[in-house]
Write a protein that binds this DNA or RNA. Structure first.
Length: 884
RNA sequence: AGGCACGUAGCUCAGUGGGAGAGCGCUACACUGACACUGUAGAGGUCGGCAGUUCAAUCCUGCCCGUGCCUACCA
């Protein structure tokens, strides 16, 4: 405990830059973030959604990490063995691209370097730049257990990946097959369906004729004329009268020596185009399916770089665009072109490179997803895992119910190389966890490993358990798995959440997490998605530099409404910065008035009404905050704390406490100090999970004996049954009277420094007046009242007058009361009372209301009406005074 | 095409089957010793439109209008 001098230890305002990094370092060095798997307390585990190792912290991470850290810090304080496991993702394509671009600048390429040298290069790069994101996570204040930090490509996780692959392979849940895949011609790799993004593009629908073998022709419509080089059929609807006579005949290819059969297939819609579709099985998913149904030839006309191959005849070597142009020109020349019309259609682009996706036939590895999906589906249906908010269940179901096999091989170098070896001698394949020396079928030494690597999401899918030591039996796995909650955005429900569910259920027979909290997307203040091209990207590190991590965290928490996007504006953060300053200055006040007091932080049993009131309110707030933490209603938590701290604790309680703190009554002063310290200490603890830095700083500075060295290790406040009776109604009435006096003053522009005398009386309720009289000091201090008479004045002329809940207030201020102003105010008040009477009596006159509405409500309405009538009557009397 | 949201104060958004809330902005007054990153008081809304259920609807139901997002193979 530091001894205190007369000077404050606290600066005028909170300056986050001064304390954040050293405080974080202290926490980390002291080992507060770590947890032992021997810890006997119940576990609470979160695994971080591993950010891309090449990445930088963006707003999405900032939100994600804020929410996770709030939960982790809350649970840690609340007595759980808390593990927040951090790490990063090797992010195959993204990382490879970054390093390739670097090489390009130096005039090098990975092809020149060769595979091994290139991968070494990427590792070098990772070592040098991969810590950036990790450092940025620290700046958020995230209390991760860094001793357990993992990387999806480190040794342990690579082992897990191989184990998973081989297990699935042995169960025939992974297979290799030639299939029409999404080909990214820029990265020259296959990608999964999920990595294809569709954009609406204005294109041309080209109508052209195929000559028929027996004379005449048939007109087809297509958005991609160049694929006609791979056409192996023309399909029509089986019941299309126009084409009945030519089904089974052949069309002739204008450039290639090929006869193209006319086939009938129910897939074709008569209404679209001409009702006749050219079929290119090797370059269109639907055509591919049809090709399988009709055993059509599948002629691939594209090279892997997207140019025309040897099957394209005279067009070989051209890229798609050029080929399209030349073909249209050629058709025109041959008088086969019918027309072209504008046409809007969806075109797939690579999520990573932006290149137009080419469906391409190639041999790839796939995961057979259906059996895995069924279990993943059932786990959510039976609530073993629940989504928050619940609406995401449906999204999850829909995808899993219609799931297609997952293409997991990528023609890249950076990633987990597929653990399958092909034998040069017997041609068979060997899948193995450890690199085999020989073919398991013929023992030949001439084996080659498959050059492809796995989709990054394959390793991410194992993340919740591979990071805890799986497939080995580990104490971490035993203690911390399954995890309690996953916090992430909806954009990766399919990519990641669903796959973790499938993998975890398959390999551990358990769900990976009990809850999945899906948070919103962060947009700019105008609701626009943040993107580099729009130039509206907000850098969280920049915001931390300027406002502090606490302000950013609290803002994100306050804006995090379930199921809705977040619009982040700098104004909001400024507001929270001000709030932090408020909390800070309250801390300075506490320090100032408590001097050398060192009290135990026990809940006091105060005798003064105001102290009873704040303790009572505090415990209501503790209950609400705990409740909303469990429900993960983050905005509610922030709102409740904001309102309570600023508008109840600071605006009311601190002001109400001053008469005692600055007064001479030793016992009252003592009690108030104790209550103040207790309340403030509790407020800091309640707020700590959201704003760790400022609360720790203020807490360290409190003149209190404490059981722990850091607020983050102290116990989270609990609600307690308070033994003192508190008449909240009377205190509310007192506050309402204070507000009313201020209102009257303000209406007459009486300077705050001018002392006034007032009359205060209540004809119906002497008890209320007794209470007000015994609490007069507060009215005097908070409304700058000099003298109070507890009876009606002899004359109500030249007074500011109002009535509240039967208590009448008259401010006598000869000469200062503006008669006109007063009249208007009273008229307004009177009208309000009259509206009340009308509203309430209308209800009560309705016999159905009296008969059917809850009795309590009817009684309340009656009471309110009585009150309104009284108020109205008093105001009318006063108005008569004015007119006379 | 199917699915999911959302239309509440000038702006950004909470909220509930029983008389509309916050933050910012705006107006007036005030540098009383925690705080001008402040205090006090105030102005401002047919809760998108139309019907229905109900004693009672901003909230529940249906339709309509408007705005976003996700999924999907229409050549």
């Amino acid at each position: 405990m530091k001894t205190k001098d007369q000077q404050s230890n606290l600066a005028k305002n909170f300056i986050p830059q001064d304390i954040e990094s050293t405080l974080y370092q202290q926490w980390e060095d002291a080992g507060y973030f770590g947890v032992s798997n021997d810890d006997p307390r119940p576990a609470y585990t979160i695994v971080i959604p591993p950010p891309n190792v090449t990445g930088a912290l963006h707003m999405g991470h900032a939100l994600d990490h804020t929410l996770q850290d709030i939960l982790i810090r809350f649970k840690r304080m609340d007595g759980f063995a808390t593990l927040w496991l951090p790490g990063t993702d090797h992010a195959g394509i993204a990382t490879q691209n970054v390093v390739e671009r670097e090489l390009e600048k130096k005039g090098q390429s990975r092809q020149e370097m060769g595979r091994k040298a290139f991968i070494d290069q990427v590792w070098e790069w990772k070592k040098q730049y991969g810590s950036r994101i990790v450092e940025q996570i620290r700046r958020m204040g995230s209390s991760c257990d860094w001793s357990r930090e993992r990387f999806t490509f480190d040794e342990g996780l690579s082992h897990a990946v191989r184990h998973a692959f081989v297990s699935l392979y042995n169960e025939d849940l992974i297979y290799r097959s030639t299939y029409l895949v999404n080909w990214d011609p820029k990265n020259q790799t296959a990608i999964s369906d999920l990595e294809v993004e569709y954009q609406e593009v204005k294109g041309m629908l080209t109508y052209f004729q195929y000559p028929l073998e027996q004379g005449g022709h048939i007109t087809v419509a297509t958005t991609r004329p160049e694929t006609m080089l791979g056409d192996t059929a023309i399909a029509v609807a089986p019941d299309d009268d126009r084409y009945q006579n030519i089904i089974g005949q052949y069309a002739l290819h204008p450039w290639l020596d090929r006869k193209i059969p006319i086939i009938a297939d129910p897939y074709v819609k008569k209404e679209f185009g001409t009702g006749a579709v050219k079929i290119t099985p090797a370059h269109d998913p639907n055509d591919y399916e049809m090709g399988l149904r009709h055993q059509l030839d599948m002629i691939s006309i594209l090279n892997k770089d997207g140019t025309m191959n040897e099957h394209a005849g005279p067009f070989q070597g051209l890229d798609c665009k050029e080929a399209r142009k030349k073909i249209i020109a050629g058709l025109q020349e041959k008088q086969l072109l019918v027309k072209q019309e504008e046409h809007l259609h969806q075109v797939g682009h690579s999520q990573r490179s932006g290149a137009v996706i080419e469906p391409l036939l190639s041999k790839q590895w796939f995961v057979r997803t259906e059996p895995l999906a069924q279990e993943a589906l059932a786990a959510v249906q039976t609530s073993k895992t629940t989504f928050i908010p619940e609406k995401w269940n449906k999204t999850y179901y829909q995808w899993l119910e219609n799931i297609r096999d997952w293409c997991i091989s990528r023609q890249l170098w950076w990633g987990h190389q597929i653990p399958v070896w092909y034998c040069d001698d017997c041609q068979k394949e060997t899948a193995a966890i450890e690199d085999p020396a020989t073919c398991q079928h013929c023992q030949s030494h001439h084996i080659q490993q498959d050059p492809d690597v796995l989709d990054t999401w394959f390793s991410s899918g194992l993340w919740p358990f591979s990071t805890l030591g799986w497939p080995d039996a580990s104490k971490d796995m035993e203690k911390f798995f399954p995890t309690q909650v996953l916090v992430t955005g909806f954009d990766i429900i399919f990519f990641w959440v669903a796959r973790m569910m499938m993998m975890s259920l398959k390999f551990t027979q358990q769900v990976p997490f009990e809850k999945v909290h899906i948070h919103a997307l962060i947009r700019d203040e105008h609701g626009q998605k943040m993107s580099k091209s729009k130039g509206n990207v907000v850098d969280p590190i920049d915001l931390i530099d300027r406002y502090g991590a606490d302000a950013l965290r609290f803002s994100l928490c306050a804006l995090s409404v379930q199921g809705r996007d977040i619009l982040l504006s700098e104004k909001k953060i400024e507001g929270i910065r001000n709030f932090i300053n408020k909390l800070w200055n309250a801390g300075k006040f506490v320090e100032h008035v408590c001097q050398d007091q060192q009290q135990a932080a026990q809940p006091p049993q105060p005798t003064l009404s105001i102290n009873q009131w704040i303790v009572h309110r505090l415990h209501e707030v503790i209950g609400q905050v705990r409740h909303n933490l469990e429900l993960m209603k983050f905005n509610e938590i922030a709102d409740q704390l904001y309102h309570f701290i600023w508008h109840e604790f600071c605006d009311w309680y601190l002001e109400l406490s001053k008469p005692h703190l600055y007064g001479q009554h030793v016992q009252e002063k003592q009690e108030t100090i104790q209550t103040l310290l207790y309340a403030y200490n509790t407020i800091l603890q309640l707020t700590h999970p959201i704003m760790p830095f400022v609360t720790e700083t203020l807490w360290q500075n409190l003149p209190l004996y404490r059981e722990t060295k850091s607020i983050m290790l102290s116990s989270y406040p609990q609600t307690q049954k308070l033994t003192t009776e508190v008449d909240m109604k009377k205190i509310s009435h007192l506050m309402a009277c204070i507000t009313l006096i201020r209102t009257i003053r303000s209406a007459h522009t009486i300077k705050p420094s001018t002392k006034i005398s007032i009359h205060l009386w209540n004809q119906k309720n002497q008890e209320v007046i007794d209470f007000l009289q015994s609490h007069a000091i507060y009215m005097q201090e908070l409304a700058n009242v000099d003298h109070i008479s507890y009876s009606a004045p002899a004359s109500k002329e030249n007074t500011g007058y109002d009535v509240i809940e039967g208590t009448e207030i008259a401010i006598s201020l000869e000469g200062l009361v503006d008669a006109q102003e007063e009249l208007q105010r009273l008229q307004k008040e009177e009208k309000k009372a009259l509206d009340d009477i009308q509203f309430l009596s209308k209800k009560l006159k309705n016999p159905k209301f009296v008969a059917k509405a809850p009795e309590k409500l009817v009684q309340e309405t009656k009471d309110k009406l009585k009150q309104a009538e009284l108020t109205h009557q008093k105001l009318q009397e006063q108005l008569q005074q004015h007119s006379s």
